[in-house]
Each structure stands twice: as C-alpha cells, then as structure tokens.
C-alpha cells in the first residue's frame, strides 16, 4: 500500500517549504501580532486593576468621609450638649446671683424699714410724751383754775410734806 509510504520528494519539499514558512512567520508574522495583543491585554488588565484599586480607594475615602462626618456629628452633639449645660449653668448662676442680690436688697430694705420704723416710733414716742405732758399741764391747769382748789392742793401738799417730815 503505497499510500502509507511517504514520498521522499514531497517530504523534501515539505520540509523546505514549511521551514521557510516557519522562519518567515516566526520572524515577521506572529510576534508582531501576539506581542501587540499581549501588550494590549496587559494594558487592559492593568487598567482594570487600576480601576479596582481606585474603586477601593474611593470606598475607603467614602468610609473615611463617613467616619469624619460621624465624628463631626458627634462633636457637634457634644458641643450642643455642652452649650446647653453651660446655658443652664449660666441661667442657674444668674438666677442664684439675682436671688442673692434681691435678698441683699430685701435685707437692706428691711433694715432700712426697721430703722425708719424705729425712728418713727421714737418720734411718736417723743410726741406722745410731749402730748401727755401738755395734756397733763392742761389737765392740771383745768383742775387748778379755782382758788379753793389751789389752796386745797397746797394744803395737801404741805400736809404731805409734813407727814413726810414727821
């Protein structure tokens, strides 16, 4: 069966032709194509990984942003709380001071009132004394208007004085 016996002439030409084909394509054909596609693929891979990195960075930035926001919110809350406290304290203090002040004023007023009252009382007392002396004088004068009465009084006084000396 000569089908299974390779023909030497054809094999000869085959090795030459395939050799030349391989040489030329390996030199000028395939590397230009595969090289550029590989480089392009590498570029795409790099771009993809870069994008992934950027995405990650973005995510971390967002996280950071969130954290900062959270922080600032907390700070704000704290600040508000603090101010509220301060306000309360201030009001309290003001209230206290006002109370104290008013108390002092009240006290002072009370004292003044007391002193004035005392003075008024003093005055009243003085007037009452004067009045009573005047009234007594008037009463005495009324009683001693007649001569009899004056004598009687003089007598009684003398008698009394005698009695005292006895």
């Amino acid at each position: 069966m000569d089908l299974m016996i390779p023909d030497s002439g054809l094999l000869f030409w085959m090795l030459i032709a395939f050799g030349i084909l391989f040489f030329i394509l390996a030199r000028f054909g395939w590397p230009a194509i595969t090289g550029m596609v590989e480089r392009r693929n590498e570029g795409i891979d790099k771009a993809l990984s870069d994008a992934a990195a950027a995405r990650q960075l973005l995510a971390s930035l967002k996280l950071q942003e969130e954290r900062i926001l959270q922080q600032s919110r907390e700070e704000q809350e704290k600040l508000i709380e603090q101010t509220t406290d301060l306000r309360k304290q201030l009001i309290e203090e003001a209230k206290e001071a006002a109370e104290k002040e008013s108390k002092v004023i009240l006290d002072r007023t009370r004292e003044q009132l007391r002193i004035e009252k005392e003075a008024a009382l003093q005055e009243i007392r003085l007037q009452v004394a004067t009045l009573s002396v005047e009234i007594a004088e008037k009463l005495l004068r009324q009683q001693l208007e007649s001569r009899d009465k004056q004598r009687e009084l003089m007598d009684r006084l003398v008698e009394e004085s005698f009695q005292l000396y006895e």
Binding site: M4, I5, P6, M14
Partner: peptide, 9 residues
Amino acid sequence: GNIAITMGL
C-alpha cells in the same frame, strides 16, 4: 491527507 506532509509536520 498525504502521509509525507503529516510526516514532515
């Protein structure tokens, strides 16, 4: 489909 060619390869 020729054995000489496949033999060369």
